[in-house]
Design a protein around this nucleic acid. Structure first.
Lengths: 217, 217
DNA sequence: GGTTTGCAGTGACGAATATCACAATAACTG
DNA sequence: CAGTTATTGTGATATTCGTCACTGCAAACC
């Protein structure tokens, strides 16, 4: 992970990716207090149980958010994309609580990290910031409900297809690089089940498979 | 559903159940703008797809929140208890969106309804209101994540026990009145599966069963 | 009190996955 | 290129739960 302080660059990134944060003074504050951070694809950004110290404004790339139970079973929740932030962070920041989730860089990812102490302050001071925070909460909530729909109401083949589509979107590519085992972890399924379902999808002409590669047709 | 305007009563209810909303002027506003509403046990408060017009501050009783998919399959999400509010409401109110959930009175329930237009305004004006709203979002988010844990990682017997415990807490009673079919709907399971698992729990000495009655031991 | 209705119990069977055990193959490495 | 490792394929079997078909029983209603 590489970080940099770069006031003018942050200003331009914010204007580009967060146009709704239009207030000049707010943009100034973000530029003053924020730090540009780079994460390599695959690197762990924040682990389950860690204390959150920054709130991330995502600029480039994407972040995979997942949940784990006591026995180490994992479940993918959703991706964060540029223009989005992690609402779970608020919670953790404001209440000084441990993280309930794990975040990993899906691609090489750039974000602006805002130290937690400003988040709350800015809520009262900047209308656009307050709206942004509320909208983020709302979006994350909706994602969680969709995740619930998926695991509660759908069978594995449909969940798999949904997952592949989301992953394709997060990576901006219809060709995915992932092993069946990795997908199985994300879906909390068995590797064999994923293999068989993928095979079926290939027979159906929906995907084309290769070693470490899945192409959506 | 019965409603009443009752300024002094609202004041006292708020002070009693929402002590964190300590600002005098905020309490005044709530008393001025809020309406006391009563719902009979079992009555539908808000259906899936409806537009939300009020934000509920729950005073007495409890509310069951659930989700439904396109085919009409249902899934229980969580209960709201006195001192809590429905964060989904914010979302709907602020963005003028349709409800993603259904809420039904689990017991006879009393709440103070706040017309949506004030919620946003008060966020900027009253610190304690802002904190309340944020905390509510956080709590609901956590509930959703726990729901996900439950359906993703647990088997039906454990989900059933969790559900019974939650229901007991929501009803303030270790003796529950519910048919196996109703429970099956809430868990998105089959009636037969629920019957068999309950029977097993009875054998294990964890519950005692009767017609329309489940006693937690 | 006899009938109807709703709830619960039960067996048989099937579908969706998990689990286990290994075979086959592709990619990497010295 | 030979050997090793990672990945994928596949069959057999087990488990969890859903579905269907029916029975028994208790409560509610004439």
């Amino acid at each position: 992970m590489i970080t940099e302080k770069a006031r003018p660059e942050i200003l331009s990134l914010i204007r580009q990716h967060y146009p709704q944060l239009a207030e000049r003074k707010l943009q100034d504050e973000i530029a003053n207090e924020g730090t540009i951070m780079h994460f390599k694809a695959g690197s762990l950004i924040m682990d389950f149980g860690a204390y959150v110290k920054i709130m991330p404004l995502i600029i480039k790339g994407s972040i995979k958010v997942s949940r784990e139970d006591e026995e180490g079973n994992e479940l993918f929740l959703y991706y964060l994309k540029p223009g989005e932030t992690c609402s779970m962070s608020f919670t953790c920041c404001l209440m000084d609580k441990k993280s309930e989730i794990r975040t990993v860089a899906e691609e090489d990812t750039t974000l602006i990290g805002i130290p937690t102490r400003f988040m709350d302050e800015w809520m009262s001071r900047y209308l656009s910031w307050k709206n942004f925070v509320m909208t983020s909460y709302d979006n994350r909530m909706l994602e969680l409900v969709r995740t619930i729909d998926s695991i509660a109401f759908k069978k594995m083949d449909e969940r798999l297809m949904d997952y592949l589509e989301q992953k394709a979107e997060a990576n901006d590519s219809r060709t995915l690089n992932a092993t069946h085992q990795e997908i199985a972890y994300d879906l909390n399924a068995s590797r064999e089940a994923v293999s068989r379902l993928l095979k079926q999808l290939e027979k159906d002409g929906v995907v084309q498979l290769g070693r470490n590669r899945i192409e959506l047709l």
